[in-house]
Write a protein that binds this DNA or RNA. Structure first.
Lengths: 262, 262
DNA sequence: GAGTAGTTGG
DNA sequence: CCAACTACTC
């Protein structure tokens, strides 16, 4: 089974790219997308049902938004933290639509769009840290139901220095500060391992390149889109690759897909 | 010699359409464009020089803007009314960039983007009428230098009932009210005749279709883009046609080119 | 640099 | 409907 993650930076702007990619990759069973930037009523559903995919979405106007695009119906689809966690714990952290989960072939899949955090120490940075804390609580609850869990998405965090092109500046940069890394490590301490690094220990492996300053042609990227797996699944994993091709197209997303095979 | 007029509704948005059209119509010596919507420093000049055209432009940010795109350098290029008319007469009517003129093969060519006028009786409607009054003064001055004059462009006026699809509503509609028609007739009284009607007396000949309400597929158009000629040139004219093809393209201008042959 | 939204203008 | 602008976010 193949599961992919792709921050599309607007599902409407990237509709052709997304459907073309699915058709070029017919062995992908589930594509988890982030930053759909559209309310559910306006999600471009027909483009996917026309090519025989089913879609579950959880979106909002302009910002954020996640969706699951699959070859067959998914089970137990849950939108946001509510429904899994008590409302008192969730607070207003569901106001931004950043998490959707479902089960596929007995595996619990969680698709996340972790907050960017803007700048270290900012109000958005604190939001990012609070969101990750709640994510850990959410995963803890799901793991009690199903020990085989895969969480993928845009984490907006490069965990290791080999995951970014300019590690010398990493301590003061959003997405690579110690506090963010520790917050993510705290989530992963539930027993989650990075699928990509099971197969590839090389630096220079990126999933996101800023639109600005010719980052892509200069390959000044970051690996911030991940698949993390519980032990059983990590053992089962047979491959994990970054597909740079969609980032080469005209009017691309700034992210490119990452695909894990189980 | 062939001279064309085309309101491109943003030269930057229509750059491909414009260069493709020039290459598909290599016998057009001069293309007069309107609504370039760009300041001169940002005019996409290279796209035209690369295919061996010379360009003179007179533009502003967001609105209006006119340009002359020619196979060979033009003579005596004049931007705006100033330089031809006394500043006291021009007032602030050059603040909007709507007129550029030049000489080609001994012919005085004037390229205009007449104000739309918004709604009958509005402030913009009064501006349109004042602008047309000044245009007459401008043409009077140019005619003293050269009796062979061609004025073309987007006039935002349909002079006769056969020039619009819904003449029954024409009296209360901007672009076809009596006052506007009289204002334009007063300009034409200098001795200018409509090149298109020398060759074609049929109704249903349009150069503009509103983007809204499916006007183009329903052919609910207006003929508001014209070539007016002084007597010598009118006698010399051998044809005048509307080329609907560019309006069929994806992301078209709402106007399509009109070409006169002399 | 590239999305979305809202506004103005046609 | 389409294009420009401003303001916002990433």
């Amino acid at each position: 089974m193949k599961i992919a993650t792709w921050n599309v930076n607007s599902i409407r702007s990237r509709l052709e790219h997304a459907t073309n990619w699915l058709q070029a990759n017919p062995d992908v069973d589930l594509l988890c997308v982030q930053e759909t930037k559209v309310v559910d009523e306006q999600f471009p559903l027909a483009a996917f049902t026309d090519i025989d995919y089913v879609v579950d979405f959880y979106g909002q106007k302009s910002y954020n938004g996640v969706a699951l695009i699959a070859k067959a119906p998914l089970e137990n689809v849950r939108r946001g933290f509510a429904g899994v966690l008590p409302a008192a714990d969730v607070g207003d952290l569901d106001a931004q639509k950043r998490v959707i989960s479902a089960e596929i072939q007995g595996i619990q899949v969680v698709n996340v769009y972790v907050p960017n955090g803007s700048a270290i120490g900012s109000e958005k940075y604190e939001y990012k840290l609070a969101w990750l804390k709640l994510l850990k609580q959410y995963l803890t609850a799901l793991l009690q139901e199903n020990p085989d869990l895969l969480i993928c998405g845009d984490f907006n965090i490069a965990l290791e220095d080999i995951d970014l092109h300019n590690p010398e500046k990493r301590a003061k940069h959003i997405m690579s500060s110690d506090v963010e890394r520790e917050a993510l490590q705290d989530v992963l301490a539930l027993g989650l391992q990075d699928a990509f690094r099971k197969f590839n220990q090389e630096p220079g492996q990126y999933s996101w390149w800023d639109y600005r300053a010719g980052s892509f042609p200069r390959d000044k990227g970051w690996r911030i889109d991940h698949h993390y797996l519980t032990p059983n699944l990590y053992d089962r994993a047979v491959g994990c690759v970054i597909d740079k091709a969609p980032r080469e197209l005209t009017k691309p997303s700034d992210h490119t897909p990452v695909i894990v095979e189980l």
